[in-house]
Design a protein around this nucleic acid. Structure first.
Lengths: 187, 187
DNA sequence: TCGCACATGTAACGCGTTACATGATTAC
DNA sequence: GTAATCATGTAACGCGTTACATGTGCGA
């Protein structure tokens, strides 16, 4: 891991929770970290192969295992893998500016009519509301299902981050919509 | 523009505000949209060349111009470019999950000590505070310098978005730090 | 004259998605 | 038997950053 590959780190992290197949890793990422992390197939499977080569993960090729009838490979993290994960976790995260196409369009909004900008914000508001309800749902589920897990406090913190930010976005939308509808009738 | 290149759109948007050189476009992006958009040299200059070929932008190659003594090319948007920009602005923005390494690390925080996680959040809090002060500064500047610009209301909206989110992040940090220091002494 | 800001551009590399390709198992 | 889901993987392409390469003009 010369220049730490973040897909590698995400996989190691997921396997630190429990052994999983590639397919299950993808699902878990989609369900639990959807709000701040995603991985695609084209990244995931090559990364698993690379981590195998590095000896950071391993899997049981148990053909006879009845729960493993398909071509499924259940990966687990190795001691070296755990060490590499911890090393990465101890380093400060790099912050990089994330592109937000919605905001960029709004920034150039003066080039089109206020009505269209308003419609865009309404749509964004709608999507944000549905994201919020998914997040609160996940929050309730996790609290029930992982009561005694050492991971729970950290999962709650990251979920809360998403929830607080999403709520702020909703409030912003409401203010922006009000401002734009005034412009609309005003001119 | 088969599959709309967003760097192209950002450049067209910037040139819709005023004619600029590549260097000035980069600076303007860094100053004004830093919170939600960035471009690097490796994207910008090839994109300018491509937009020229498409006839969406143009520049005056005035060697005799005294304000243009260097190898500077001042680009302006063409009528076709303006049309392309408006077409893009009218389309709904694609929302895609943005990767947040800081959150990913926190999610896996149980693998390392609460102390280190706490230190990470303290650092994040510090960085966020400085980001907030830059944003409010920009807000005041823009209000003064572009009082009568039709762009101002949109610029204010996008700035306010950044400010509100950043404030929420600060509050979240404070709560998370409190929660973590309790864990610290508790175990 | 020396260093910084201005100014443009290219090459190499890694990131990330989408579409493609394949096939097994399960539920209807 | 047939559709959905489980399951793994590859290829092509475009996105994006970093480092490199080059040169000008201005102020101390």
């Amino acid at each position: 891991m010369r220049k730490t590959n973040k897909t590698h780190c995400a996989i190691l992290g997921m396997l630190s929770i429990s052994p999983m197949s590639g397919y299950e890793i993808r699902q878990t990422i989609q369900e639990s970290t959807a709000n701040f992390w995603s991985e695609s197939d084209g990244q995931l499977y090559p990364a698993l192969a690379a981590l195998m080569k590095l000896g950071l993960i391993a899997y049981q090729a148990t053909k006879s295992n009845p729960t493993n009838a398909r071509n499924k490979k259940v990966y687990r993290i190795t001691p070296q893998g755990k060490k590499a994960l911890q090393q990465w976790l101890q380093q400060e995260a790099e912050t990089h500016i994330t592109r937000n196409e919605f905001m960029l369009k709004l920034f150039f909004g003066a080039n089109i009519s206020p009505e269209i900008n308003l419609a865009h914000i309404q749509n964004y508001h709608y999507q944000t509301k549905s994201r919020l309800s998914k997040l609160t749902e996940t929050q309730q589920q996790l609290t029930k299902e992982h009561k005694d897990s050492p991971h729970l406090p950290y999962w709650m913190m990251s979920l809360d981050y998403g929830i607080q930010l999403t709520k702020t976005q909703l409030t912003w939308c409401e203010n922006a919509m009000r401002a734009l509808s005034k412009m609309d009738t005003g001119s």
